[in-house]
Design a protein around this nucleic acid. Sequence first.
DNA 1: CGAAGTCTTGACTAGACTCAAGTTGGGTGG
DNA 2: CCACCCAACTTGAGTCTAGTCAAGACTTCG
Lengths: 247, 247
Amino acid sequence: MQTDTESTRQLALRMARLEPLSSGEVDAVCRLVRRVSRISSYEEVAREAGREVSVLLSGLACQVKMLDSGRRQITGLIVPGDICDYSFLTGDIGSSHVMALTPSHVGRIAVGSLTDLCDQHPRVMRAILRAAASEWAMTQERVISLGLRTALERVAHLLCEMHARLASVGLVGEGNSYDLPLTQAELGEALGLSTVHVNRTLQVLRRNGTITMRNGVVTIGNLDALREEAGFDPAYLGLNRGNVLPA
Amino acid sequence: MQTDTESTRQLALRMARLEPLSSGEVDAVCRLVRRVSRISSYEEVAREAGREVSVLLSGLACQVKMLDSGRRQITGLIVPGDICDYSFLTGDIGSSHVMALTPSHVGRIAVGSLTDLCDQHPRVMRAILRAAASEWAMTQERVISLGLRTALERVAHLLCEMHARLASVGLVGEGNSYDLPLTQAELGEALGLSTVHVNRTLQVLRRNGTITMRNGVVTIGNLDALREEAGFDPAYLGLNRGNVLPA
DNA sequence: CGAAGTCTTGACTAGACTCAAGTTGGGTGG
DNA sequence: CCACCCAACTTGAGTCTAGTCAAGACTTCG
């Protein structure tokens, strides 16, 4: 478990998992972050999209879409090391909101400095495209969850995914436990389930000892059983493809 | 309605809707297609990804993901003018299958010639990134459909989306009608609904005169009513942002 | 010690699924 | 040209998963 959770190294750490990077490239990525904002819960993260790229350094955030009258869907969760918003690639003025779910730290990167670094270091460029591809794959996986997985499978799958993603930035601790400070209502908004049903589904997983979940801390008692339950295969995340290259 | 449905212009047509292009750029995009494959129903479209980029020129295709034991989810529909597979951007050996739903024509583009064109014409590059963004936005919209729309809203939304997408490549004819040669079972696989429920939902839309659907031809009797029913806002598709520039 | 938010439980409802039995319609071969 | 076949579509009946509503319990915090 890492202690310096607002570390500006989070992005580089993630990218090195997606594409092999030299230690020089890792350092250069770390230096991209020109300032760090503190964001409080439920605050918008990515105001200045277009000029700046936002990277989550600590905490937890999500993309949300609203429909009429309070119906709300969390379309993606954002963990430390994730780029919050890819509109810098497409020039879109993003229609999607990114909001913090807990107090968070967000690193800001000037688009120009990022594109310069990409020009000099093709591996950095590839890492960023891989990160985008990973984001896309996660969204597709969410379509599958909502389209044809049962409540139990959905919950289990989300817990597996978060485990894998947080592990890749060193945020999973002893005994496969990690912070997931989401209310059951928020879990429901992410999973397309009602709060009550999320509650009952979690109870099933707790009763058979697969997980425990208290005070926003998930502990996976039996990872194999959970993955079995979820039909989880981490390949789509594209992690473990890279590493830090020897100098 | 356009007659030359396997036209190699489909891609350029689409791209010009996403980003303003000069007529020279449009022609250059048309010339990218170096050969055309005929694909029959249920045949795999995109192998050889990495060396080539596949573009659907006519017909209808989809991305599919399989789970255990025949559970299957259609995660995206592909219409003429769409790039079938973005793995050329990310270097991913795509885990997702692209398969034709009807006999189709697919244009093949050498990755090298595409990147060369992008280097010469930044607008072409932007158009491609916009196409990717549009694809991403559609997937997010699907998450919303599956997560919090009712069966009626989902069906209506899909019909609206296909109307808008096909219209942008000139495939919507008289009286807002277009080809949608999908069985109700396939619709169900795309919408996360059972075949029977798709059937009953379509009946509702037919009974109140909003649509008719016969022999794979959808006719939207009342587009406003359908969009109302679906809560459809075409903005996420990013179309109508471009045009062919005056020479 | 409230108060607010979250979690839990129970009872009931409803939207969607499954199973099963027709019906329709286009295509094929005799 | 007709008969048959098969796939797709339709309909009905019963079930079940998940949603809704409502009340109560547990935490955290001022």
